[in-house]
Nucleic acid binder design. Structure first.
Length: 514
RNA sequence: CGGGGAGUGGCUCAGCCUGGUAGAGCACCUGGUUCGGGACCAGGGGGUCGGAGGUUCAAAUCCUCUCUCCCCGACCA
């Protein structure tokens, strides 16, 4: 059906046509195409935004909640989040962090203790004014992040240099009253982890901040197959209350940037505001140095927007809730019994080899429908097994990242587990390579403002910046592009500012962003 | 928060202008034929039209308010 040109589909006329033999056939075709277009997701190139929304809903990752800007994370979406959590939590634990839970409600006065923190967050706070039917003496805010309440706790817990460092993380949700929302990317409530650490020296805090940035980078690259640029934020883009903010920035499938994780060196700002102090070896009272770092369910949005296509979701094997789906193919009852028996044996074998594997035993749904259905849900690898395979002792492997016959391969059942492992690894790698090639093709090292402007129309501009906030601001006003980050790795030593032309020592990525 | 669009069975939408108490396709259920890339036939169940108020003998349809979603702008993980 897909080879029919769109122009041959006069949908409006379908109801008016007289039913001659020819128009009857045309109507049948039109109906079939209509049905197809309902089943298919809107094309990514035509309407990226609508494509994204449909994918989230149709793949059953999330749904809208009755309150504006809120999101229901459905089981499939949550399973993906759980895999993200495990991948990160493992890394946090390996670097000495422990998990804890701090309260949802924070006294309003806490937020007001750190001056730039209030300024940054007060416009987007949800405030609780009543409890138990009575107006509260002091309003409570629902945490937009937990620096303040954790700072309060740390001030009680930390007395001596022997108590340091404190390395705590928590998995929770926070609320920020955003004006413009989008599933996963920006919702009023979102799920994340927030790590909060306290240290004796600036150097230790800075090392921690950078270590966590490295962990996010490692996770994004190796588990999510998303190439990211680790870098430093400009002062205007810093977290409210931070001395230094680092982020990993990724390019989405439409060329726009997404901040996928952040790590902040909070200096002594929160320590001073919350009296987080320790007695050093010399008996001198010192303010602590603190950090915080977070990665949210927004990252699910990144996975979708980086890898997926017009067929639907495409999940990186390491994070996919299900890595392999087995679709049995049969005609008769007798075949059904034999094929299902083999399919179950294969599933057991793959599960024993620690591949997350499901068998689609649904009846009354054709194999073709199942193929499309699981492609929509982004399962990286499909195994087809039918009567022909039974006679040959084979199965067909079909990889999600290569469409149609091109991605199919018949292999012997005896070599299955090894082949599946290799194939999943190959998919993981090809997703990363593809995303990296895409980003590189859409990133321009620009020397003049005209090139800069055309670069940010389709991707990133990598340009020298003199460090003057005015230049940054003008660029934003004139082009809608923001300074995403100043990468840790600087390929060149000096050049001239893309905006004012003055000498500049660093290059930064600029892009339109989510 | 400003500008634009939209809310009618699970989904996509028609009906609204010119009020008379709801319709199609898909999905769902049952039976049968199908099944290696989105099957077909027959029968069946399901909505009071986002919510509240108003006009009217009568409201999905007209009026007012409100909620939600989408798109575009100002703020943000």
């Amino acid at each position: 059906m897909t080879h029919l040109p769109a122009a041959s589909v006069p949908a409006e006329e379908s109801n008016r046509c007289q039913v001659t033999a020819k128009t009857f056939v045309d109507n049948k075709l039109i109906e079939a195409i209509d049905r197809m277009s309902e089943l298919k997701v809107p094309s990514r190139s035509e309407d990226f935004s609508e494509w994204y929304n449909q994918l989230v809903l149709r793949a059953e990752l999330a749904d809208y909640a009755p309150v504006r800007g809120c999101m229901i994370v459905r089981p499939y979406g949550w399973a993906l989040w759980e895999n993200i959590q495990q991948a990160l939590d493992r890394r946090f634990k390996a670097t000495g962090h422990v998990n804890a839970a701090f309260p949802l409600l924070i006294p309003r006065s806490f937020i007001e203790k750190e001056k730039s923190h209030v300024a940054g967050f007060s416009p987007e706070l949800a405030v609780v004014t009543h409890g138990g039917g009575e107006e509260l003496e002091e309003p409570l805010v629902i945490r937009p992040t937990s620096e303040t309440i954790i700072g309060h706790a740390y001030s009680k817990w930390i007395q001596s240099y022997r108590d340091l460092p404190v390395l705590i993380n928590q998995w929770n949700s926070v609320v920020r009253w955003e004006l413009r929302t989008k599933l996963f990317l920006r919702t009023l409530e979102f799920f994340w982890q927030e790590g909060h650490t306290a240290h004796a020296t600036f150097e230790e805090a800075e090392t921690e901040t950078r270590q966590m940035l490295d962990i996010y980078t490692d996770f994004a690259v190796n588990d999510a197959a998303i190439p990211v640029i680790p870098g430093r934020k400009s002062p205007s883009e810093r977290f409210a209350g931070a001395d230094q903010t680092y982020s990993i920035e990724a390019m989405m499938g439409d060329g726009k940037a997404l901040q996928a994780g952040t790590s902040h060196n909070l200096g002594q700002n929160f320590a001073k505001a919350f009296d987080i102090r320790y007695l050093d070896k010399n008996g001198t009272l010192q303010d602590c140095w603190t950090t915080s770092w977070g990665l949210s369910t927004r990252f699910i949005g990144a996975i979708i927007m980086v890898h997926s296509d017009d067929q639907g979701l495409l999940l990186p094997p390491k994070l996919a809730p299900q890595q392999v789906v087995i679709v049995p193919i049969y005609k008769t009852e007798e075949e059904s019994a034999r094929v299902l028996e083999a399919a179950k044996r294969i599933r057991a074998e793959l599960v024993a080899s620690h591949f997350r594997t499901i068998l689609d035993e649904r009846e009354g749904v054709s194999p073709g429908f199942k193929f499309n259905d699981w492609e929509m849900r982004g399962i990286p690898l499909r195994i087809e097994i039918g009567p022909k395979d039974l006679t040959k002792n084979t199965v067909v492997l079909a990889r999600r990242d290569k469409p149609g016959k091109e991605g199919k391969l018949s292999i012997n059942q005896d070599a299955l587990a090894g082949a599946v492992g290799e194939m999943l690894a190959a998919i993981q790698k090809s997703l990363y390579d593809r995303a990296l090639a895409f980003r590189e093709a859409k990133t321009l090292d620009t020397e003049n403002y005209d090139d800069f402007k055309s670069a940010i129309e389709s991707g990133f501009a990598f340009s020298f910046w003199c460090g003057d906030p005015d230049c940054e601001q003008k660029i934003k006003e004139e082009t809608k592009a923001t300074l995403r980050c100043i990468p840790i790795k600087q390929p060149r030593r000096s050049g001239s500012c893309i905006k004012c032309g003055k000498p500049a020592g660093e290059q930064a990525y600029f892009a339109k962003a989510y």
